[in-house]
């Protein structure tokens, strides 16, 4: 029973990790590529970490819960790095399928002028 749960969690986790990278590889532009790694991969690794937590907690050497730390850390940092990456891409005017709102370019060029 335990082994079955563990196996299912591991396979699901690996599957989501794979789907995240698949999204990175096959989506058409940068902004759509951003979605795979930030969501699917994070959940995949989270699932693997839960599996590992169960595995080490049932080894008879006390409860193991520091995996929670990595999971929490990933869930907090993934949106932050996604936001920064997408901000950087908007700043560099990376090619996009959907047109970015006009106010970004305006504010960006104003900020550039302000720094000179």
């Amino acid at each position: 029973m335990l082994e079955t749960t563990l196996s299912i969690l591991i396979v699901i986790g690996a599957l989501f990790t794979f789907i995240g990278s698949l999204g990175l590889a096959r989506m058409p532009d940068f902004y759509t590529r951003l979605h795979g790694p930030t969501k699917a991969t994070t959940l995949g690794v989270g699932s693997l970490l839960i599996a590992s937590m169960i595995h080490f907690s049932t080894q008879g050497e006390g409860v193991s819960f520091h995996e929670v730390l990595v999971t929490l850390f990933l869930f907090i940092t993934a949106p932050v790095s996604a936001h920064l990456l997408s901000k950087a891409a908007l700043h560099l005017r990376v090619r996009s399928i959907a047109p970015p709102p006009a106010q970004i370019e305006q504010a960006d060029s104003e900020a550039d002028r302000g720094r000179e």
């Binding site: 986790g13 690996a14 990790t17 995240g20 990278s21 990175l24 940068f30 590529r33 951003l34 795979g36 790694p37 991969t41 994070t42 995949g44 690794v45 693997l48 970490l49 599996a51 590992s52 995996e67 990595v70 990933l74 993934a78 790095s81 990456l85 997408s86 950087a88 891409a89 560099l92 990376v94 090619r95």
Partner: peptide, 21 residues
Amino acid sequence: DKPDRILALDTLYVNSIALLV
């Protein structure tokens, strides 16, 4: 583009965490 490569690096380290686990 450069952001694509950074995103790939970011994903690479999350994937390596999965592999280590």
